[in-house]
C-alpha cells in the first residue's frame, strides 16, 4: 500500500547497523513477552530460591563430612556461591527451556517464521537473548540476594573474574539456546518430541552441573565431559569461573571451550535448519 516499491534491502556494507537494530528490536520483544507473565516469574524465582536452600544444606553437609572441609575442591563458601548463583543462572540460560519451536513445527505455525526477511535462527536467538535479559533481572537477582543474606558466600578476588563471568554466562546462554533449538528441531522429523525433550532435560541437568558439581566426578570422566560435550559449558563453567575454582589460565581455557562449542552448535543449527526447510511439511494444511 502507499508505495509501489517494497522496502529494498540496503547493500551489504551498510547492513551492519540496520541488522543490529533489527536484532535489538527482536531482543526487546523477547524481553517484553516474558515481562507479561509476572505471576509465573514470581513463582519461578520463589521455587529456585527454595531449592537453593535444599541444595546448599546438602552440599555443606558433604563438605563438612570431609577431612579438609573441601568438597570437589570447593570450600564451603565457594559451594554456597556455586549453588545460589547456579539457582539464578538456571533461568537465565533456560536449561530446561520450552517446546515453543517444536509446537510451532507440529501445528504448522512455523510457516510464519519463514515469511520474514530474517533467518529463523537469528529471530529465535534474538528473542532468547531478550528472554535471558529479563531472567537476569527477575530470576537471577532474587536467589543471589537470598544467598548473600542467609549464608557466608565466596566473593571473587581477582578483577577479571567479573567480566570473564559475564562473558562465560553469555556463551552459556548461546550454547543452551543452540542445544534447545536442535532438540526442538527434531520435531521436523518426529513431530512428537516428548522423548528427546525428557532425555535433554535429564541429560542437561546431570551433565551441566545442576544436580551436583561435575568436579565430584572422577577426573577422566569429568575431562571427557568437558571436552567432548557442550553440557558443562551451560552452567558449570560460568559458576567455576565465578568461584575462581581453577588457575586463571585454566578458567580462560574453559571459556575457550565454550566458544568452540558455541561455534560448532550454531553451525549445526544452521545445517539442521537448511535440511529441515528442504523437507518441510506444513502440518494442518
Amino acid at each position: 500500500m502507499g508505495s509501489v516499491n517494497a522496502t529494498t534491502p540496503p547493500s551489504a556494507h551498510r547492513n551492519i547497523v540496520p541488522a543490529f537494530r533489527t536484532f535489538a528490536a527482536i531482543t526487546g520483544s523477547g524481553f517484553r513477552r516474558y515481562s507479561t507473565y509476572r505471576q509465573a516469574t514470581v513463582a519461578g524465582a520463589f521455587t529456585n530460591t527454595v531449592f537453593g536452600f535444599l541444595r546448599t544444606y546438602v552440599l555443606l553437609a558433604v563438605a563438612a563430612g570431609t577431612a579438609t572441609g573441601l568438597a570437589g575442591g570447593y570450600s564451603q563458601k565457594q559451594l554456597v556461591t556455586f549453588v545460589w548463583t547456579g539457582q539464578g543462572l538456571l533461568a537465565v540460560v533456560a536449561l530446561w527451556g520450552s517446546t515453543e519451536l517444536a509446537d510451532r513445527i507440529r501445528t504448522g505455525d512455523v510457516a510464519s517464521d519463514l515469511l520474514r526477511p530474517v533467518h529463523p535462527i537469528t529471530m529465535y536467538l534474538a528473542a532468547d537473548v531478550g528472554r535471558a535479559g529479563h531472567a537476569v533481572l527477575t530470576r537471577f537477582v532474587p536467589p543471589v540476594l537470598t544467598g548473600l543474606l542467609f549464608f557466608d558466600v565466596y566473593l571473587p578476588r581477582q578483577w577479571f573474574t567479573a567480566p570473564l563471568f559475564v562473558l562465560s554466562t553469555g556463551l552459556a546462554v548461546l550454547l543452551c539456546f543452540a542445544c534447545r533449538f536442535l532438540v526442538n528441531s527434531v520435531a521436523y522429523w518426529l513431530t512428537d518430541i516428548r522423548g528427546p525433550m525428557i532425555a535433554w532435560m535429564i541429560g542437561s541437568g546431570v551433565l551441566g552441573g545442576l544436580f551436583f558439581p561435575l568436579r565430584f566426578l572422577p577426573e577422566p570422566l569429568m575431562v571427557a565431559l568437558w571436552v567432548a560435550t557442550p553440557f558443562p559449558g551451560m552452567l558449570q563453567t560460568p559458576l567455576d569461573v565465578l568461584v575462581e575454582r581453577d588457575a586463571p589460565a585454566l578458567r580462560g581455557g574453559l571459556v575457550a571451550l565454550q566458544v568452540m562449542w558455541a561455534g560448532l552448535l550454531l553451525t549445526a543449527c544452521v545445517m539442521v535448519q537448511r535440511r529441515a526447510e528442504r523437507r518441510l511439511v506444513i502440518q494442518g494444511g
Partner: peptide
C-alpha cells in the same frame, strides 16, 4: 495461522515488523 506475536499488544507486533522488514 498467525504472524503476530501472541503475547504482545498489536501495536508492538507492528512496531517489531517495522524493524524486521526495515
Amino acid at each position: 495461522r498467525s504472524q503476530l506475536w501472541w503475547d504482545l499488544p498489536l501495536r508492538d507486533s507492528f512496531d517489531l515488523l517495522r524493524h524486521i522488514f526495515r
